[in-house]
């Protein structure tokens, strides 16, 4: 018990938690925007892979780090657009389309990577994002130490939480997005395009998901590996329900998850001799299921989630 307390009091633990949470923050925000507008996006796992591969490869080819981020963003938007076309105007099964996008995006990424680098044993590395030193903030006690160890992408994720919260709760656009996910007929009656709002939400949400993937190859690591996303996308889908579709709660959920994951790694090094390491590796997935079960009962699903809407058909 004392050991756990000691771990919880170190700044490196909280810095690691925030680092682990960063891709999830992007992913949960992206999924949240899609679902708030009424569409489940199970393409998230594949879009993470696309973001990780494209962002890294663009940087490796010389586009620079922010160039890589832009490429990842656009690639995520592209696969989001496919999902949007299939699920919004065509109104096809969101489950199957999303899984199809995941399979498609993953195989495109793997094929491209293998074709560009046919026979490398150790993947080429890039110079990843470095921790950002912000003058006054990093001088704060403890919090400064936690934040001082983060890269620009983590800051971007935190800014995105604020931005998404602001847009959803303080603007007409946010009102329209939420309305289109709850009662599309009312939006249509006001003369706004349900199709356009839903499709834009999916495209932008997917682009954000891709940034979560890009964080993995451009900040957390410096290279791309097969299977590196490893279910993070699915975890985000569970976290959105846990966060009951609110950006603030999404941040808390991602941070909690990051903290448990960071704790798990530290406990593994201390208790590795007694308990098999795999027990700890399972923990994040078990935790996600637990979070889902806790939240599911009282979950206030967007009312039109999973329901296709066709113009002129009531």
């Amino acid at each position: 018990m004392i050991d756990i307390l000691n771990i919880l009091l170190t700044d490196s633990f909280w810095a690691a938690s925030l680092r682990i949470a960063t891709p999830l923050i992007f992913g949960v925000l992206g999924a949240l925007i899609c679902e708030r507008s009424g569409t489940l996006n199970l393409g998230i796992e594949g879009i993470f892979v696309v973001g990780a591969m494209c962002g890294w490869m663009a940087t490796w080819l010389g586009a620079g780090l922010w160039g890589g981020i832009l490429v990842a963003f656009l690639c995520g938007a592209f696969f989001g657009l496919i999902h949007a076309l299939l699920t919004v105007p065509l109104g096809l099964s969101q489950h199957v389309s999303g899984l199809g996008i995941t399979l498609f995006a993953t195989s495109v990424s793997y094929f491209t990577y293998r074709t560009a680098l046919p026979d490398v044993s150790s993947p080429p590395r890039i110079e990843p994002f470095q921790p950002l030193d912000i003058p006054i903030l990093s001088d704060l006690p403890f919090i400064g130490l936690v934040l001082f160890q983060q890269t620009a992408l983590t800051w971007l994720a935190l800014i995105m939480v604020l931005l998404v919260w602001y847009v959803l709760n303080r603007t007409n656009l946010g009102l329209a997005i939420k309305a289109v996910g709850d009662n599309p007929n009312s939006v249509d009656a006001q003369g706004l395009s349900v199709y356009a709002i839903r499709m834009w939400a999916i495209v932008v949400g997917s682009a954000l998901m891709a940034l979560g993937g890009a964080f993995l190859t451009m900040s957390a690591f410096d290279a791309f590996f097969f299977g590196m996303v490893n279910g993070r996308g699915w975890v985000c889908i569970a976290l959105v329900i846990f966060a009951s579709w609110r950006p603030g709660k999404a941040l808390i959920g991602a941070l909690l998850f990051g903290a448990f994951d960071a704790l798990q790694v530290r406990l593994q090094t201390e208790m590795g001799a007694v308990v098999p390491g795999q027990v700890f590796l399972m923990a994040p997935y078990v935790l996600s299921i637990a979070a889902l079960v806790i939240a599911a009962r009282s979950a206030d699903y967007p009312r039109a989630l999973l329901t296709p809407w066709y113009k002129g058909q009531r």
């Binding site: 199970l42 699915w234 889908i237 329900i241 590796l281 399972m282 996600s288 889902l292």
Partner: peptide, 21 residues
């Protein structure tokens, strides 16, 4: 509990493979 089976079955895939290892 009304927990979405898509998410639980997907996450169980990862749990089972780690369990197998």
């Amino acid at each position: 509990f009304g927990a979405d089976e898509v998410v639980t079955t997907l996450l169980l895939n990862f749990i089972i493979i780690i369990f197998l290892q």
